[in-house]
């Protein structure tokens, strides 16, 4: 069976590639100022979780969102309508990644470091998301991630939590879930939302993915989502898209964004590209749409 052989081969390649990434991230972990305690689990536990979360089949519904790309392209139509939008895409791509790092990454890091703050972090991120479209996208994916945890991951991770009297990250997660179910703790103004960023931090902590990897994957997944939206909006070809994802430039950008945000407090998270709020907010005003954001 040649087809299964090639499948096997490509899977092995993928694994080798991811292992390289992991090793890379691990070496970064050593240099990171706020490094984790040395209780990191054996390599393959974290690797396995990382593979689960990086799988494009993870049912978060990310494919439905373009994070403002569709709206941006509509606001920047090329003068001859047939000319290429690739350079427009590159500008947007860069801005979009900085925006996500500036607004959401501090919440990923904070929820990972202090799981018990999840409820407050969720509220504060909600208060800091100024536009309905972005909010909808973040909550939809956050709830989906929570559902994946609940239905698929939970039974495999609950048993081995160390109980030394303190509430564990899993406890924090369980409590947060029950808050969502009751969802009337603070009245309508303070509804529990389940935004993606803090939940990503908390769940990667529970799955024992090292923090630098969790943060790297958070930004990488966003990059992948935007690039895949560009392919479906016929701005990029599939090979072009893979080339951007594989590029050294993207790796360096993710790394330096992580560095810049590593010690940023959530109180100081903010919008570095103000027009992004306009583009994302005006997505609802597009005449025709193929994405939800």
């Amino acid at each position: 069976m040649t087809s299964t052989d090639t499948n096997q081969q490509s899977l092995q390649d993928e694994i080798a590639d991811l292992e390289r990434q992991l090793k890379d991230a691990k070496s970064r972990l050593k240099t990171a100022p706020l490094a984790l305690p040395s209780t990191t689990p054996p390599n393959d536990v974290a690797l396995h979780a990382l593979l689960l979360l990086s799988d494009s089949a993870l049912p978060l519904g990310s494919f439905a969102f373009s994070s403002g790309l569709e709206s941006y392209l509509a606001h920047h139509r090329p003068s001859p309508p047939t000319s290429s939008q690739v350079s427009s895409f590159h500008t947007f791509f860069r801005l979009s990644l900085s925006t996500l790092a500036g607004t959401a990454l501090p919440y990923v890091l904070a929820a990972y470091r202090e799981p018990n703050l999840i409820e407050r972090l969720d509220n504060d991120l909600d208060a800091s998301t100024p536009c309905t479209v972005a909010r909808r996208a973040s909550v939809a994916q956050g709830r989906a991630l929570l559902a994946v945890w609940d239905r698929s991951f939970r039974t495999h991770y609950s048993s081995d939590s160390p109980t030394n009297g303190y509430p564990t990250p899993i406890d924090a997660l369980t409590e947060f879930q029950s808050l969502i179910r009751s969802s009337s703790s603070y009245g309508a103004e303070f509804q529990v939302n389940a935004h993606l960023a803090p939940l990503w931090g908390l769940i990667t902590r529970v799955l024992r993915v090292p923090l630098p990897d969790a943060a790297y994957l958070f930004l990488f997944s966003h990059a992948r989502t935007v690039i895949s939206a560009a392919v479906r909006a016929s701005v990029l070809g599939p090979y072009q898209a893979q080339a951007i994802l594989a590029s050294k430039e993207l790796q360096e950008r993710i790394r330096s964004l992580m560095e810049e945000m590593w010690e940023r407090k959530v109180e100081d998270a903010g919008q570095t590209v103000p027009v992004m709020d306009l583009w994302v907010g005006r997505h609802e005003k597009l005449y025709s749409r193929i994405f939800n954001s």
Partner: peptide, 19 residues
Amino acid sequence: KRLLLRDNLILDESGKVAS
């Protein structure tokens, strides 16, 4: 105190990666 809204605009030219 509980946060109702936070709107934070950061235009910092020295940011490492932003354009």
